[in-house]
Nucleic acid binder design. Sequence first.
DNA 1: TGGCCGCATTAACATATGACACAGGTGGAT
DNA 2: ATCCACCTGTGTCATATGTTAATGCGGCCA
Lengths: 249, 249
Amino acid sequence: MDSRSKPHRTPCKECPLQGLESLRSMTTDQLSFMQQFKQGEMSVAKATQVLVEMSISPHVYTVLAGILMRFKTMEDGRRQIVNYVFPGDLLGIQGAMQEPLTHGVEALTEATLCVFSRDRMLELFREQPQLGFDTTWLSAKEEAALDEHLLALGQRTARERVAYLASFLFMRGKDTGLTRGHTLKISLTQTQIADTLGLSLVHTNRTIQAFRRSGLLVWSQNELMIADIDGVMDLAKYEHMSFRPRPFI
Amino acid sequence: MDSRSKPHRTPCKECPLQGLESLRSMTTDQLSFMQQFKQGEMSVAKATQVLVEMSISPHVYTVLAGILMRFKTMEDGRRQIVNYVFPGDLLGIQGAMQEPLTHGVEALTEATLCVFSRDRMLELFREQPQLGFDTTWLSAKEEAALDEHLLALGQRTARERVAYLASFLFMRGKDTGLTRGHTLKISLTQTQIADTLGLSLVHTNRTIQAFRRSGLLVWSQNELMIADIDGVMDLAKYEHMSFRPRPFI
DNA sequence: TGGCCGCATTAACATATGACACAGGTGGAT
DNA sequence: ATCCACCTGTGTCATATGTTAATGCGGCCA
């Protein structure tokens, strides 16, 4: 499969994200700024490393389609998936600070990204203060999600963690239009789930199977089916707060 | 002790943070903007709740002095301390998005905060794009720290976690001028340490004592002494990256 | 002065979770 | 076809960490 940049370039007026209810739409002025600010578009195959740990990226990205994961690794090979990246999310903002990335990013599905130049980020803040502000807003969202994950890893049992991650992914998928009925098409291996939740592979497997037998939650290789989302969120003791539409750039 | 706002108001030109090596200093233009942007100053006693979970804060703060903690709680009482807040850090930026706070903040020491108005944040981005950009930079830093904590909770053993937290706090303290020689004056109860690391109180106690006996690390009620910071960081498998001076507002 | 309270400390015991080892299925590469 | 890598699923056993409960100590307050 091809994982290199493609010439195709969605005009910002037709940005697929504009339609999403959970995302805030842009003014025409903002749209036309973004149009010229946008450097290009990139499509990558599943399993492509989009950003690599320790490198300094010359680009900043916005996800147009697809799901990706952010992760950190230790020298001895241990890996922690720190968060998942959905359409509308900003990627690699650390690069804009000219600092080496402290995490890697890998695509979990085919994905297409909107490409911006690291060096022009300040220009965005200068010309479009509101969009600059929105960038901070997005960062605040990311922080809130990470806080939530920390709560999960620090305080929840294995069962609760699995229920938590399932609800989290499902809700994010729902907000970005990726769910159909009770299912979210996402393919995570159990190893990836384990590396997200800080559990061993074996125990993750057992926990997922217990859910499957209960019928509450069926998490297979290609999709996540949640029969009763409220039930699962209760079980996880997860209080999802639905907020106002999030901005994006 | 008094924990209410006080009239005292440090002029920005004499901001104690300007002197820190690890923080970037401001231009005189930026300083004078901040001077009028600053709404006031607040001094709080140890153990004061500065921001409360679920509330919508009308203020955003920068820490001038002191150490605070950010935490989340679950309905059944479980608590996770998600990060520590040092001088130069921004607090409550979620408030600027007019959204309810997803975490609380409590002072661990006497602390003094610089107060800004939530509603004027956009003005900051408009008039001082660089400072707006810096705000995003700060958020990116916070994200990186949270990623690091997730790695600790998800992948490290109890021993490694304690060593990690000790190094993390010590380095942050060092960067903000709070260490003297091998010690950092900070008073954390073992319960707080446990709630940071996702360990039980008893096991935290055992682990800390083991370190104390080894002499590598003495963590008492009022201070943290690290005999050999490199040794402790090795033990934690923690690779601290020292970056360029961080900005602040 | 006595009593209460928060905190550190210890011991004895319980268990959730991890480690290891192996089987079986699937799909891609050659 | 054959091989190989990767993934899910199992069983057995090991152990790091959690739980409960009791002790002691210092500070604070009536």
